[in-house]
Design a protein around this nucleic acid. Structure first.
Lengths: 351, 351
DNA sequence: CGCGATTGCCCAAACGTTTGGGCCAAACGT
DNA sequence: ACGTTTGGCCCAAACGTTTGGGCAATCGCG
C-alpha cells in the first residue's frame, strides 16, 4: 500500500504512446481555438484527447511558465487576512481569478513598510504576472517605485497616488454617516479614524468632517483620533477620546471591528450604546447586525471590490488601461444610533 | 519614464560577464554549505556573489522547480478565510513557512466537498510539495484517497481519520466549559454545536456532554443543534433552540462568531446575556472581550496551530513521520457566564 | 622527481513545455 | 501533366536551472 508517488504524466509520454510528436500533442491539447486548426486530423485529436484524460494529464506549470515567461499567477498583498474585511475582499479576488484561469498568491504585510517591500520582492521573485495591493499607504513612494519598474498592479480597498484602484466611495460613506447623525440632532461628535496612512480612514473621516463643517459644526481636532483597524485599536482610540473633557454624543468609528472595541470601552465607562451615546461603524460585517445593540454602519461591497480589482488587473495584463472604480456605499441604520429602533429593541422582540 | 520590463538576470548572464561557466555560478550561489566547497576559489566566489547582488539576481523558481521536481510551495485549504479563526491559523502557517523558505498557496473551499476536491486538484496541479488541510470532514474518504495517492499532507484545526493533525484539545475544551457551568449551578444547558462534519464542533460538544453526563445531568438530544460556524449560523441554531419548549439557563456555542449570532437571537427574544441566560463561546477571538457583555470562551492557540502544522508538514517532506499534536485550551471566564463579574460590570467600570 | 590527491573549473544532459519553421503527400487548378 | 496550395505532422531550439562527471593544473610527500 502507500502508492509511491507516480511521476506525473507528460506530453512526451502521451506522444510516445500514440506514436506522435510531442509538439503535436501540445498543440492539440493547448492551442487556442483559432490557431490549432491544422495541428492534427480530427481522429488524431480525438485519440490524443482521450488518452490525455485517461492518463489524467496535467500540464506542468513550471515548464510552461519557464517557456512562456508567464506564470498565470498573481500576487495579493494585504495587511492581514485575520481582518475580515481584507479576507472578504480576497475571497472576491480568488473567485474572479479562478474564473480567469489564474491562481493567487496572498501574503500578509501587517502594514509594515519593510514587510511590504520584502513580501513584494518575494512575490515578484515567484514571478507573478501582476500584483494586487490591499495595503497601500497614502504616501505612495513605494508604489511609485513599483510602478516605475513596470510591474503591473492595481490597488483595492485603499487608493494611493493616482494608481489604478478599486475602492469603496469612502468619502461619500463618511458623508452618509454625517447626514444621519445630523438628522438625529448630534452636534458634538467624535471620530475614531483608523490608521493615518490608510485612504479608507482618511476619506471616511474627510467626508464626515466636511459634512459637519458644511452644517456649521466643524469638528475640533481633539475629537479625531487615530487607531488600528481592529477591536483593540478601537478600544484604545476611544479611551483617548473619553480622556479629554466632556464626552461626545456620538462616535463614528471607521470600521466595524474598531467599533466593537469602542463598544467595549464605552461599556467600561458605564455608557450604554444607543442610549447614552451613539456609535456608527463601517463595512457592515456580518457581526454588526448581531451585536446586543445592533450597529449602524455603512455597507461596502467588499467581495465585489476584490472581483473588480482582479478584473482590472486582467485588463492591465492584456495591455489595456486600467480604470479606477468607486463603488457605492450604503448606510444601514440600526439601534446603535437610532433612538426609535433602540426603544423597540428594549421593548422586546424587534420583528 | 515607464521602464520597460527588463528581462530578469539569469545565471548565464552572470557567468558570461565573469567568463565563468553557468554551473560554477550556480554552485557558488546555491550550493549548501557542505557540498559546494570545491565549487570555486574564494576570490571567484567573491566576484560571483558581488556581481549577483549588484545585478539583483533572483533565482527563477520555475526553472528550478522544473529541474528539481520540487516547488517549495505548499497548498493550504481552508473553508473560508473570512472566518477569523482560519485566517489566524493561516497567518501562523505563512509565518512558519517563510521561516522555512517555503511559500504558501491558500484557497477557500467553503466546506463544500466538490470544491474541496476541485481546489485540491488545482493546487496539486500547481505542483505543490505538500498540503495543509484546515477543512477536514470527519468522514475522511476524500483524505484517505489523497493519502493513498502518496500526497504528503497534514491537518490543522480539524482532525479526521487518524491522519496526522495539529488541533486544539477540543474535547478538553468542552469539558472545561462544562466544569465551569456546573460550578455555576446550571442544570439545563444547550449546545450550538456547529457543522456536524467538523471534529472541532464534535469534540467540543462531546467533552461538554460527557462531563454533564458524568455529573448526572445528561443533555437531551433536542438541546443540541447544529449550525454554521458564523454569526448567522449561531443565530439560526439559537432560534431553533428557543423554539422548543422552556429555555435553557446556559448555552455553549462552539465558536465565538456563532456566539455573537446567539447573542443577537437572545436579544431579539428579550433575554439579557449574563443575567437571564449564560453564554459561552470558543476560541477567544479578539472580539470576545470587547462585547458589551464580555464573552466567556475557551482560548485556543490558533496561530500556534498553524505554525506547528507547517512544521509537521516539513517533517513529512523530509521523509520523517509526522506526529499529531493536541494543543492546550484555556478557559477564560467573563461576564457572560459569571454573575459576579456581570454585577461588577453593571455597577460601572470593571477595573 | 614521480605519483596520487586535491583544487578549480567546465561540459552536457535533463526537467516539460511552446513555437517558428520545414517537409511530404494529397488535393486542386489550369 | 505540372505547378500550387493545403493538411498533417515532425524538428529543434529555447526557457533557466541543477548535477554527475570529467579534466587539467597544482600540491604534498616520500
Amino acid at each position: 500500500m502507500g502508492a509511491k508517488k507516480a511521476r506525473p504524466v507528460t506530453l512526451q509520454m502521451i506522444a510516445d504512446q500514440l506514436g506522435l510528436h510531442v509538439s503535436t500533442v501540445s498543440r492539440v491539447l493547448h492551442a487556442k481555438p483559432g490557431e490549432g486548426l491544422r495541428a492534427a486530423s480530427s481522429p488524431t485529436v480525438e485519440r490524443v484527447r482521450r488518452l490525455a484524460d485517461e492518463l489524467g494529464y496535467q500540464r506542468n506549470p513550471h515548464a510552461m511558465s519557464l517557456r512562456t515567461q508567464r506564470s498565470n499567477l498573481i500576487g495579493v498583498l494585504v495587511p492581514r487576512l485575520s481582518d475580515m474585511v481584507l479576507a472578504t475582499i480576497y475571497e472576491g479576488v480568488e473567485e474572479a481569478a479562478a474564473e480567469h484561469g489564474l491562481s493567487t498568491f496572498v501574503t500578509n504585510t501587517r502594514d509594515v513598510p519593510e514587510v511590504q517591500r520584502a513580501r513584494t520582492e518575494m512575490v515578484l521573485g515567484r514571478r507573478v504576472d501582476g500584483l494586487i495591493f490591499g495595503d497601500a499607504h497614502s504616501d505612495s513612494v513605494f508604489l511609485d517605485e513599483v510602478a516605475a519598474r513596470g510591474v503591473p498592479f492595481v490597488l483595492v480597498n485603499r487608493r494611493a497616488g493616482g494608481h489604478p484602484a478599486v475602492v469603496c466611495d469612502d468619502y461619500l460613506g463618511g458623508r452618509l454617516v454625517a447626514d444621519h447623525l445630523l438628522e438625529q440632532g448630534h452636534e458634538d461628535v467624535a471620530v475614531v479614524a483608523g490608521e493615518p496612512y490608510a485612504s479608507t480612514g482618511i476619506d471616511r473621516t474627510g467626508g464626515f468632517a466636511d459634512r459637519f463643517r458644511e452644517a456649521g459644526l466643524p469638528i475640533p481636532a481633539h475629537r479625531i483620533v487615530h487607531s488600528r483597524f481592529d477591536a483593540q485599536g478601537g478600544r484604545a482610540g476611544t479611551e483617548r477620546l473619553l480622556a479629554t473633557g466632556p464626552r461626545p454624543s456620538a462616535v463614528f468609528v471607521v470600521n466595524d471591528f474598531g467599533a466593537i472595541g469602542t463598544i467595549g470601552a464605552l461599556r467600561d465607562h458605564g455608557l450604554r450604546v444607543g442610549a447614552d451615546i451613539a456609535v456608527v461603524g463601517f463595512n457592515d460585517t456580518p457581526l454588526a447586525a448581531e451585536l446586543p445593540v445592533p450597529l449602524t454602519t455603512v455597507r461596502s461591497p467588499m467581495r465585489e471590490m476584490g472581483r473588480r480589482g482582479l478584473r482590472q488587473l486582467v485588463r492591465v495584463l492584456a495591455g489595456e488601461q486600467a480604470e479606477s472604480e468607486l463603488l457605492r456605499p450604503e448606510l444601514i441604520v440600526r439601534a446603535s444610533s437610532d433612538p426609535a429602533l433602540y426603544e423597540r429593541l428594549k421593548a422586546g422582540t424587534v420583528g
